[in-house]
Amino acid sequence: MPRTEQMIAQGLTLVDAINEALYQEMERDSRVVCLGEDVGLNGGVFRVTEGLQKVFGPERVIDTPLSESGIMGTAIGLAMAGMRPIPEIQFEGFLGPAYDQLVNHAARYRTRSRGAVTVPMVVRVPVGGGIHAPELHSDSPEAIYAHTPGLKVLMPATPYDAKGLLLSAIRDPDPVVFFEPKRVYRSYREEVPEGDYTIPIGQAKVLAEGTDLTLVTWGASVHQCNDALDTLPEDVSVELIDLRTIAPLDVETIVQSVEKTGRCVIVHEAPKTAGFGAEIATTIQEYCFLHLKAPVQRVAGFDTVMPYYKLEQQYLPDAAKVSEAVMQCLAY
């Protein structure tokens, strides 16, 4: 939607940036439609689609039945028939009922049909904990989808990246799962270009350059890692990498950094075992074995069910846990 005075003066939140990308792309491309539970009149439960239905009408910003597999499956059909659907699954926990359609169909149709039938769509999904939500509203399932050939998996951490990555995702010829870290939705504002710009899928961003240790993370954890950097001794030089794209993984950026630093800590909210950090650690030992000065460390969620919110802060990686892991890895 057009920018408000607050946005002009103070910048955009993550919600604002995603909303602006949707608005601009719907204006540019009549094939783009948004569909999902409460995305229309109500503007989505997080207000990400706020105002879009008023501008583009109920036929392009569609309130669907409460039916995740229905949303995913019909979006696949729309995409096959030449539209550019953007289904929203209200919370990551509700990807469960849509899993079959996403993984067994959206992800596989290009291969199954040897390129004859394709599914260009962006599945928008709020993700992660830290917002005092009920059960199944706080999980981090990105590794499941990164383990699905045929899907691309994004998780921007900043308003700037969110807008540029979402525009890339909508224009991508393949299905993209676009995870939006809820904890960041309104946590801060930043300057975002008003015009059209894209950020390539599959490119990580080096947020801070450093020489002693590489910190790899994505999503809301980027901000915890940033906070951790402020708590470290001044003579410690950490390189902070925000993946932005989980799949396809930007191996080059990670490998180049770890070859330089010889040490790496990976941070994610999802449970540790078989989390995406495991893939990164393996990749590092495959490519950087002789450069390593310490075992690659993971700071992750526990291998438990995500607790209800009274204990969620104890579950989630925070700046203190990250700092501790960094110092231990440096001392190894």
Binding site: G77, L78, H105, S113, A116, V117
Partner: peptide, 28 residues
Amino acid sequence: NQIPKGVCQLPLCIPIGTQMLHATGIAW
């Protein structure tokens, strides 16, 4: 399954009952 251009159909669907949603989306 490589449906030729101009032929309006999806390939055979092996799992049961998943394709009706695709048809609904196409019709939509």
